[in-house]
């Protein structure tokens, strides 16, 4: 009896604390679930609306599952050459990202690691361009590209975006933090400038590169103003954001929400997928740099 007393008392306490912990767990999960719901609901609603008929979209209360499932919106998008636009978006974003990483890394490296007269000035001049708002560049950009005959072409879409001041700045900042001793060790081992850059410095800059890949790919994928002014007549060169804007058109109130949301899905889903995939590398990259630093 006495023995059982001594054993039950702590068990009860333990049980109680476990119960409290469980309640806390349930409550925090409930809260997380609510927050997730708030974030996911608009997305789910957009997916469901893209499969609804126009009259049903206006019905209240809003049904989360379409009563009459229709592909009307998607058919309309595909009738508009959306495949070609998706290819353009993807092609341009890939090219721009690859070149942006390469040139930004090269420029960032030379501006921080190779001493030449005026390097500080060049660096500051490049950084200075970041202060010019994009909107005032629109018309000069159009005039320059027109003079160079790059209107309505992939060249006009890609070349002005091949390297960015932000990319150079990001890479330069990162290179600055890499100890010079590593390079000196490599030089003693007989490595040349490019070997050193590609084999020693660039691999160390992986977190910065991953960040830049994400920034420039997303930036290019979502870019609207630049393609808008570069593409004047050739609809085959539209990117997805231009295509979506075209769909909205001058319709004003009579927007075909199912088609617009179908287009938005086609624009968002590839990007979201890539991000889920990249997210791991992103975090991995940061932890790598932590270990090595």
């Amino acid at each position: 009896m006495a023995a059982s007393m001594t054993t039950t008392a702590p068990t009860a306490v333990r049980r109680e604390s476990r119960l409290r912990e469980n309640i806390r767990l349930v409550l925090s999960y409930a809260l997380l679930f609510l927050i997730a719901l708030v974030f996911l609901y608009p997305f789910v609603l957009a997916i469901s609306t893209s499969f609804k008929t126009l009259p049903e979209i206006n019905e209240r209360p809003v049904a989360l599952i379409p009563q009459t499932f229709t592909l009307e919106g998607y058919q309309r998008m595909f009738a508009l050459n959306v495949g070609r636009w998706a290819f353009n978006s993807f092609f341009i974003a890939t090219t721009v990202t690859v070149s942006n990483v390469l040139f930004s890394a090269l420029a960032g490296y030379s501006l921080t690691r190779i001493a030449f007269p005026g390097s500080r000035f060049v660096f500051l001049a490049i950084i200075g361009t970041m202060m010019i708002p994009g909107i005032v560049q629109l018309i000069p950009m159009f005039i320059v590209l027109k003079t160079l005959g790059m209107i309505d072409s992939y060249t006009g879409l890609i070349i002005p975006k091949m390297v960015t001041a932000f990319g150079i700045f990001l890479m330069a900042q990162f290179f600055e933090a890499i100890p010079r001793e590593i390079e000196e060790a490599a030089r003693i081992d007989g490595a040349g400038r490019f070997r050193m850059f590609f084999q020693i410095v660039l691999p160390l800059a992986r977190p910065a590169i991953v960040a830049l890949v994400i920034f420039s790919f997303q930036g290019s994928w979502n870019e609207f103003m630049h393609p808008l002014i570069v593409i004047t007549t050739n609809q085959d060169l539209y990117t997805l954001p231009l295509g979506l804007a075209f769909l909205r058109g001058g319709l004003g109130q009579n927007l075909q929400w199912n088609a617009l949301l179908a287009g938005s899905m086609l624009t968002t889903v590839p990007m979201a997928t890539i991000f889920f995939f990249f997210q791991r590398y992103f975090i991995e990259g940061i932890s790598y740099s932590g270990v090595k630093g």
Binding site: F91, T94, V98, G149, S153, T155, I158, T233, L237
Partner: peptide
Amino acid sequence: ALLLAACPAQPVAPAAPA
């Protein structure tokens, strides 16, 4: 990839004028 990507961009330019 960059070189490959840059290549098609070149000939496309004259092929798609306004």
